[in-house]
Nucleic acid binder design. Structure first.
Length: 416
RNA sequence: GUGGACGUAGCUCAGCUGGUAGAGCACCCGGUUGUGGUCCGGGAUGUCGCGGGUUCGAGCCCCGUCGUUCACCCCA
């Protein structure tokens, strides 16, 4: 292995020019609607006490049981790289008493998350998510607003080939009533060992089986939606009503299964049509018991997480994201040492006035520098040589038209 | 974690039944002294992912390993 090249760890996503600009654009677009809705940034560590995820996300989930990056730090503590965002936010809210003031607490976050899965199209071991959490309000209107915020982010990017799937997981009483009947139904099925094991961990999982015979077998299984308590049912209906009013279209999917244990009530998922097997571009829901489970007060909450990597893939698949070039307003080509110093000063001044300015360093020669100017896509170019230094006047060349005009250096900013 | 495909210059790839590597794009220089995008000429570039094996000889065959990719599982 001595000669093995060092390369990035397996399954990570990386972005560099020019694609990094698209990534940046997607990330910023997805979070913009949340900022406009009064959500505020919460910046958290990417690693947490392992117990946080065990208790928050749930031992029975795949995420916790086999996908976490867990290690022992030098003090012998068990640390885990965050596999999702909500648990960490709840921890911080409880720890710092953010829930002691006015409710709801409205937060947004953005950053890397980690899951030790086998990489695949749109599935990475380190991936990027933006998300929001609204804590301490049961009003169905906030459910609708949260969902509409996610939808607005997708729409602002020009996405259209996706759908919003909705369901309600109801409250505890709804779920336990359903569970009895579902288990009873499943016991009547002839399952192979792996499937039986999945059913044992979480019977709802069987709704998600991709095999045709299983889909058929589950056709008559009792649906949780039919077991909702009147409160849950009422709440969900109102959410749907608000979404209608907001013109956010959705399809009901009573067979939807989510991978995290904390979800209750309103639950949703955004699925893109042009992606491969990993087609979920975002998802979320209510988690009315999570806060208390983690030792906080009994506050409800709702939030979502959106996969920036996948949304970028989706935007590219739809062809709606443009490589609008990073363009400088001015590209300066200095000829000689004195000119270089002058270039530095001019650039500094113009940047101070908000202009994007680049300088051709390195004494490349005029022709080479002009080529460089062309490649950066700068809108204007000036050459700084002896005559310009003495006259303090330059020929400001507009690169698109090829025409140039004589301009005083002091008034350059007016022409950019 | 399971299974399939793949791994050759910065990028996309070619390389016939094994005889020690090529193209296009990109990049650099130049086409008479200070103005780009087209065109023309010239140039640099790879331990053919890594390790081992078979062979007189392997980019081409075999094994292992690392990685990529697609699917399962699961999810953003």
């Amino acid at each position: 292995m001595a000669n093995q090249k060092i390369q990035a760890p397996k399954g990570v996503s990386e972005y560099f020019p020019d694609r990094s600009r698209l990534f940046e654009h997607v990330r910023d677009s997805l979070i913009a609607p949340a900022k406009k809705s009064g959500y505020q940034l919460i910046e958290l560590p990417v690693f947490e006490d392992t117990d946080l995820f065990r208790r928050g996300v749930g031992e029975s989930t795949d995420v916790v049981s086999k996908e976490m990056y867990t290690f022992e730090d030098r003090g012998g503590r068990s640390i885990t790289l965050r596999p999702e965002g909500t648990a960490g936010v709840m921890r911080a809210v409880i720890e710092h008493g953010l829930d002691r003031g006015q409710l709801p607490v409205k937060l947004w976050y953005s950053g890397q998350f980690f899951r030790a899965e086998r990489p695949q199209a749109g599935r990475y071991r380190q991936f990027y998510q933006v998300g929001i959490e609204a804590i301490g309000l049961d009003d169905p209107a906030i459910d609708a607003e949260v969902i509409a915020i996610a939808d607005a982010g997708f729409k602002s990017l020009g996405l259209s080939k996706y759908r919003l799937e909705m369901t309600s997981l109801g409250d505890a009483s709804s779920r336990s009533a359903h569970r009895v009947d579902l288990l009873n139904f499943i016991s009547g099925l002839n399952l192979d060992e792996a499937t039986a094991e999945r059913a044992r961990i979480n019977p709802l999982r069987l709704f998600d089986d991709k095999r045709e015979e299983m889909k058929k077998a589950m056709q008559k299984a009792p649906l949780l939606m039919d077991y909702l308590s009147s409160e849950s049912s009422e709440h969900f209906k109102k959410v749907l009503g608000y979404l209608d009013r907001l013109n956010v279209s959705y399809v009901l999917n009573p067979r939807m299964v989510r991978g995290l244990d904390y979800y209750t009530g309103t639950t949703f998922e955004f699925v893109h049509e042009l992606l491969g097997a990993q087609s979920g571009i975002g998802g979320g829901g209510r988690y009315d018991g999570l806060m208390q489970d983690l030792g906080g007060q009994a506050l409800s909450g709702i939030g979502f997480g959106l996969g920036v990597d996948r949304v970028l893939l989706a935007a590219e698949a739809e062809g709606v994201i443009s490589q609008e070039a990073f363009v400088s307003d001015l590209f300066i080509i200095p000829l000689g040492e004195e000119a270089k110093q002058m270039a530095l000063t001019i650039a500094h001044d113009l940047r101070g006035q908000g202009k994007v300015v680049e300088i051709a360093f390195g004494d490349r020669g005029l022709k080479g520098s002009m080529k460089a100017a062309d490649k950066t896509g700068a809108t204007h170019t000036i050459v700084l040589g002896e005559s310009e230094l003495s006259s303090l006047t330059v020929d400001l060349k507009h690169m698109k038209t090829g025409k140039s005009s004589s301009v005083k250096i002091a008034s350059l900013h007016q022409h950019l």
